[in-house]
Design a protein around this nucleic acid. Structure first.
Length: 650
RNA sequence: GCCGAUGUAGCUCAGUUGGUCAGAGCAGCUGAUUUGUAAUCAGCAGGUCGGGGGUUCGAAUCCCUCCAUCGGCUCCA
């Protein structure tokens, strides 16, 4: 007999070799029907795998990540089985469960291609196979046998994976006629996989390596119930309504032009208005934190970037140098602001008493991103960083770093971003080619970030190999409408540029010392931040930010003049309004999608014009009744002020 | 850059196998209507069907190529 401990700390005895499913059955039949996976001592197991020792277990039903993981992983195998039937000879790469669903990378050979049109056929075959209720059978196998098995099939991908594995840790899973190299865990059998949707096809390099073969990746998602699938697809559809590219077009915030060039956003008046408000907000915050604004040009001599090391790293893949009538003279569009700021630092001698020096600039930079990488406002070729560089002494590093974390937290709170991930990006110690600078400095910089994050009690995830080439980073990542992660705020510790630019200050000991540089951008870039802001708010910005604070609706054309008067009056109070011309024509109503995003509706007609008032309605709150103009202006100004004040005291 | 898909009026879209296929709604303009918040009526104007090349008696439709966009991969100073 073995002791099984449950999440409520109760312990029961079972026969040795009992399975998760067996335990579930002993508790209740309905549980046994619903359970999908089991955690045994924090490791996710198949429900059918015998437990031979005392263990702590948790049973997972749909709704637990562990359950959906096993469910989707099994679905990936089911899809692979279907593909093997429909496309014999297909070779398989990897097929994991992901956050929403699963994928499998397959190689159908050069002659056969799976296209979008084939997806329903594969879905159909999956449904057919799932209803056969094939069991997923786990089997341990020696490395030698595994290599032999997949070698016979001619599957070079699996054999490559196996050769990287330790002997004695290799397991196979079989269901129906399909056998796969797999760590598991899986469902007991295929039957719970009822609702199936293959979502998309994409090319994906084998092992993520650009130089290797590109396989066909098929994405899909499955659920135990059709209704769940429909709900998921519906949610996905709704999320697309918030897409910043769609909303940005509707609200006339920004546009692109093929003539101007790919990835070069054109900010329309309302977008510029919004952006300006954000900039002013950030400038105000930064002033409080002791930053000074600087301004630097959009280009710099090529030598500047040779000094910084950026030319060597990115020169070939950047916008190419601009030549001048002067033979041999070459300028680069600036891809970052740091070198310029370094030159400002060294424009005069610095004393230890002067530090820290905090230089801020909304600096527009240009990077030649790969064409396939461009994406709305989140990934562009010309963008404006809310950049700043802090030059400080080693003893100031931690405090300065922490202050930057504070700024970012402040900003995120002010804009109601609660759902973000904090990531520490460190170097990949085995890859020396990718980074510049001494190990000693890297070590110091990485420790500083980790220490600061600990002191601020940040819940961070650590990613190795994600550091910038000159230093480690602390990044704040936010999700977009359909769940993709984007880096917004970033803080980077850099011992490198100060060395390359030979920056120094005179210490109390009257000797020269090297300052440490912190790069930071709370928004990341204005473009990306606005994009994420749009998707978070669905285009309904807070009053203090919104380009149009009120829309004036004249009952009829007769009151157009009065509407103009109201608009002008409010404009004097810095309240931006829009007169909805369309409503002048009776019965024509402004469309919801546009109207709903403007906080206040001001209705004017005979009554209002006569009494010099407006009928005020706040979206979502209903009528506020008639107000005279001055009253309304004060009311709005007060509201904006209150909002800004409450932001300040966050 | 790579794999796959898409590109028809300012916007959203229809256009069956190449032959009245240059269309609709909304937006715009001109009139009429004077009406309290999701749509008043009539008329007008809008497009080298992403660009270029080819096949054909004939191309929005088939082929090639370039450009852009979308979903991924890779990349992201």
């Amino acid at each position: 007999m073995i002791n099984i401990k449950f999440p409520d700390n109760s312990v029961r005895k079972f026969e040795e070799g009992i399975t998760g499913l067996g335990i579930a059955k002993s508790l209740s039949n309905s549980l046994a029907r619903e359970v999908l996976a089991v955690s045994v001592n924090e490791e996710i197991w198949d429900l059918t795998r015998p437990i031979t020792r005392d263990a702590e277990i948790r049973l997972h039903k749909w709704g637990d990540d562990e359950a959906s993981h096993a469910f989707w992983h099994s679905s990936a195998h089911l899809m692979a089985e279907a593909i093997e039937v429909l496309y014999p000879g297909t070779k398989f790469g990897i097929g994991p469960a992901i956050e929403n669903g699963f994928y499998y990378d397959v190689d159908t050979g050069d002659d056969v291609a799976i296209t979008d049109a084939d997806l329903p056929r594969i879905e159909q075959k999956m449904k057919e196979l799932s209803s056969q209720k094939s069991s997923f059978i786990r089997e341990e196998i020696s490395k030698e046998d595994a290599l032999k098995l997949f070698g016979q099939k001619g599957d070079e991908y699996k054999t490559e994976l196996i050769s990287d594995l330790e002997d004695g840790t290799i397991t196979l899973y079989k269901q129906g006629k399909f056998t796969d190299l797999c760590r598991g865990p899986h469902l007991p059998d295929t039957s719970p996989i009822k609702a199936i949707k293959l979502l998309s096809l994409a090319g994906a390099y084998w092992r993520g390596d650009e130089k290797r073969k590109q396989l066909t990746r098929i994405y899909g998602i499955t659920f135990p119930k059709q209704a769940m699938l429909e709900e998921f697809l519906d949610k996905l559809e709704k999320a697309k309504e918030r897409d910043h590219r769609k909303v940005g077009k509707e609200l006339e915030l920004f546009t692109f032009s093929q003539r101007v060039g790919q990835g070069l956003p054109l900010w329309l008046p309302k977008g510029a208005q919004l952006r300006e408000r954000l900039e002013n907000f950030l400038k105000r915050v930064q002033r409080k934190y002791g930053y000074e604004q600087v301004i630097t040009p959009h280009i710099g001599l090529k030598d500047l970037y040779i000094t910084s090391g950026h030319y060597e790293k990115y020169g070939k893949d950047s916008f190419q140098p601009i030549s001048t009538p002067q033979e041999g003279e070459e300028f680069l569009l600036k891809p970052m602001n740091c070198p310029h700021h370094c030159e400002i630092y060294s424009s005069k001698p610095r004393s230890y008493r002067d530090l820290p020096v905090r230089m801020a600039e909304f600096g527009t930079v240009y990077r030649y991103e790969q064409s396939g990488e461009l994406h709305g406002l989140t990934r562009v070729r010309g963008f404006t960083q809310d950049d700043a560089h802090i030059f400080c002494r080693p003893d100031q590093l931690k405090e300065e770093f922490i202050k930057v974390i504070d700024i970012i937290h402040h900003i995120f709170k002010a804009l109601d971003f609660n759902d973000y991930i904090t990531q520490i990006s460190l170097r990949d110690k085995t890859d020396h080619e990718k980074y510049i600078g001494s190990d000693e400095n890297w070590e110091k910089a990485e420790k500083a970030i980790i220490a600061a994050a600990e002191e601020k009690k940040l819940e961070t995830i650590i990613e190795y190999g994600e550091a910038a080439f000159y230093g480690p980073k602390l990044d704040f990542m936010v999700r977009d409408a359909i769940g993709r992660k984007w880096q917004l705020g970033t803080i980077q510790v850099d011992y490198n540029l100060p060395e390359r630019f030979e920056l120094e200050y005179t210490g109390a000991d009257n000797l020269k010392h090297r300052p440490i540089m912190i790069h930071r951008a709370p928004f990341g870039s204005m473009e990306r931040f606005v994009a994420v802001l749009i998707e978070h708010t669905g285009g309904k910005f807070p009053l203090w930010l919104t380009p149009d604070q009120a829309v004036i609706l004249p009952i009829s054309e007769k009151y157009h003049d009065y509407a103009e008067k109201v608009s002008k009056f409010l404009n004097n109070y810095d309240i931006r309004t829009l007169i909805d011309e369309r409503s002048e024509k009776i019965g024509k109503k402004i469309r919801d999608s546009e109207l709903k995003r403007i906080p206040y509706l001001l209705i004017v007609g005979e009554k209002e014009a006569a009494s010099n008032t407006i009928s005020v309605r706040r979206q979502g709150e209903g009528d506020k009744g008639a107000m005279n103009l001055e009253e309304f202006a004060k009311f709005i100004s007060q509201e904006v002020e209150n909002q800004l004040e409450s932001i300040d005291t966050i």
